[in-house]
Design a protein around this nucleic acid. Sequence first.
DNA 1: CGCACTGTTATACAATTGAATAATTTTAAT
DNA 2: ATTAAAATTATTCAATTGTATAACAGTGCG
Lengths: 232, 232
Amino acid sequence: MSRKTFQRLSLDDRRRSLMEATLTCVARHGLHGASVRRITEEAGVTVGLVRHYFGSKDELIRNAYAYLVGQLTAQASESARATEGKSEAQLASFLRANLTKPNMDEETVSLWATFIGRVRHDPGFAEIHRDGYREFLNVLESLIEPVLIAHGCPYSIAICRNHAIALNGLIDGLWMEGAINSGLYAQDILPDLITSAAERLLDLPAGTLSAPDIPHHTSNAPTHPKQQSKPS
Amino acid sequence: MSRKTFQRLSLDDRRRSLMEATLTCVARHGLHGASVRRITEEAGVTVGLVRHYFGSKDELIRNAYAYLVGQLTAQASESARATEGKSEAQLASFLRANLTKPNMDEETVSLWATFIGRVRHDPGFAEIHRDGYREFLNVLESLIEPVLIAHGCPYSIAICRNHAIALNGLIDGLWMEGAINSGLYAQDILPDLITSAAERLLDLPAGTLSAPDIPHHTSNAPTHPKQQSKPS
DNA sequence: CGCACTGTTATACAATTGAATAATTTTAAT
DNA sequence: ATTAAAATTATTCAATTGTATAACAGTGCG
């Protein structure tokens, strides 16, 4: 009857390991099925560590949520930052990043929704969500602004913000429904769909955001390959 | 120690009562806090009835979810159907209905998100969600079609469907973020924002959807004096 | 090498959970 | 008014939950 041999991890490593195990368990079994025992088993440790590192299970879950939100926005804005070239390309890259892997992932969306359900009841969750959302809006605004200016669109802070709100809604909605409703339509259509939709939302000429350089191959558009009617 | 006096309810009434109590409890305490005991206490009965009417707690929750989804789409499409006049007005009415009370409600959105998190793990939830989503898309398509035709827009089944997908994404995203993020911006702006956004998404002339007849200048009514009556 | 520190394991415990069963009351038909 | 069937209550039970506590073991410092 020897004890389990173990390895001491640094504070950050152990905390991250527990948070990731939490996300895995919530994704697999839902919030109600993510018990401390399952989480710690997933992380390969025993239950005591939750109390040791996070004080309580709730605090662990809150931290895991913040960890997830951080990763999501970081990945998308990183994708924009990594795109060289004109501001249109960066905005397009950001939009597409939200509707392609790894962000566009059923498990991730499912996780996100599960946590959103707790925002209303837990002030800690509310704060995490609000901060994440605010940052997302800010990134979006900073990407929209130069595009509007470059095209001589009517511009003001209020206009820019409203565009960001609408665009964010579009991203979120397509992201959620698209990831969960795999089956009603192919997810592949979403990146092209959102770039074209964004052009119209921002009153940009058609084609501004789609394929300035790279051919995005709008796969199979059977009958009407493109709608380029521009009513005056 | 006499027993609790009780009243026999019809099968439908009792079932609905239990489903509504379930939604109330999930909204108040989250899924994990909606225990059979709390639910039945909310409904004013004892725990045995869950087994009697639904067989298991999971089945009760599934039914409550279907009940919620049904109410949501019914209310929105009812709002469109009740609007007399041109097809533009009906579409506008549908859009606005999704972003005003009673559909635009933090508790409702929170409920919806909580359930969405289970869609991935529970085939029963998945079916309910898919059916509800499909119907929502269909309603949207049937509202978009006549508007496109009336304005001589390029039209095909594929185009119409893509517009419905985008518009549905916009609705869902604004609905969710708007309801939960009260504080970052006023929810009042959303109805106008979505009508104007929808005009651009569908390539309609500006003003087509906004205020054809009715001035919906929703003067900032701080509190909603009238409680939305639940369909009995 | 020895020793203290603390990360980690192991175990215990009270509370809560969903479900099952038995007992009782209401309702409606006769 | 009797009676049978169904609805509802009351109670029990095993399993699981989150947390608390004590014992152990890996690590680095002297």
